[in-house]
Amino acid sequence: MSGVLVVAEARRGAVRDISLELVAAAGSLVRGAGGPLVVGLVGADAEELAPRLDVAGVDEIVTVRSPREHFEAHVAEQALEALVADVEPAVVLLGHTIDALGYAPALAARAGLGFASDAWSVQWDGMPVVRRGAYGDRLVARVEFPGRDRVLVLMRSGAVEPAAGAGSARVRALDVAFDEAAIATEHLGYREVERGDVDITQAEFLLSVGRGIGDKSNLSQFEELAEALGATLAVSRPIVDAGWMPSTRQVGQSGLTVKPKLYLAFGISGAVQHLAGMRKAETIIAVNSDPEAPIFNVAHYGAVADLFDVAEALSAREA
């Protein structure tokens, strides 16, 4: 067994960005592990979408036609099992995405694969070695897989630049005899997040507050500060979870992706899912009392300070 199997991802007719990031990660891995680099894609439209995955470095694209129109976790698990049996890779790479989290760990468990999720990198060091965050990215862990000759790794989005350049991969369809009885869910529909009157994705200047503000009663102070500064108020997820603000204001993986000229973050720790929505802001300023908060790793300017003190000083100066 050798080479890398990348499992690409598509949703509603489009290949998702993570797929080409995985190809890039696999490209450096096959240099050590040996080839080939095979990309698998599962879906009702897998054959139509396959050309989108034909980028430099890919040796072969294997499509599996899903018996369901939409992603279904138990279909995906069976397809992945068939792909692994067919390709016999040393390393299986998927994205640390919502879809993959719904089936990849189950196959890894059943098939006894080495396993790591939310990986920052996978390298070949005579064997696969993963680096991943620990304790909310305060530390980095080196992970090995003793006794496993095949490992499955879920890679964090945005960890590497996507692969580019025209490819010349073979394309092949793999027939899978799905066990219908094991397909345990039925798709009933999608629901989009409702759009509010304020569109934070269009704002040039966002003042974003997180759990550090402590209490709902403190929110109005930041609404006033945003107004005084000419900023639009945005929030991290816990503020929406608590029902203090509508989800239309939420920045992050499960919220909205913003790209303002200036992102001023108060009391936000910088969890990966928050960063996913704002790391492309042109300038990021973070105010946090914890000098180790991961937000300082992406911020351009940081103040280790009590957010209320800074907010009051800002209000006083703007008054």
């Binding site: 890894a108 006894g112 694969l113 080495g114 396993f115 790591a116 993963v130 965050g133 620990a134 990215d137 305060r138 530390l139 980095v140 862990a141 080196r142 992970v143 090995e144 897989f145 003793p146 496993r148 990021i284 300023i285 973070a286 300082f296 790793n297 992406v298 911020a299 351009h300 300017y301 940081g302 103040a303 280790v304 300070a305 009590d306 003190d309 800074v310 009051e312 000083a313």
Partner: peptide, 23 residues
């Protein structure tokens, strides 16, 4: 299925420029 062999502080990268001083 996996073993952590070492833990370390993450590379600081282009860490933020710290704004010093009082509020």
């Amino acid at each position: 299925a996996s073993r952590v062999t070492a833990m370390d502080h993450p590379p600081k990268g282009d860490a933020a420029e710290l704004i010093e001083g009082g509020p």
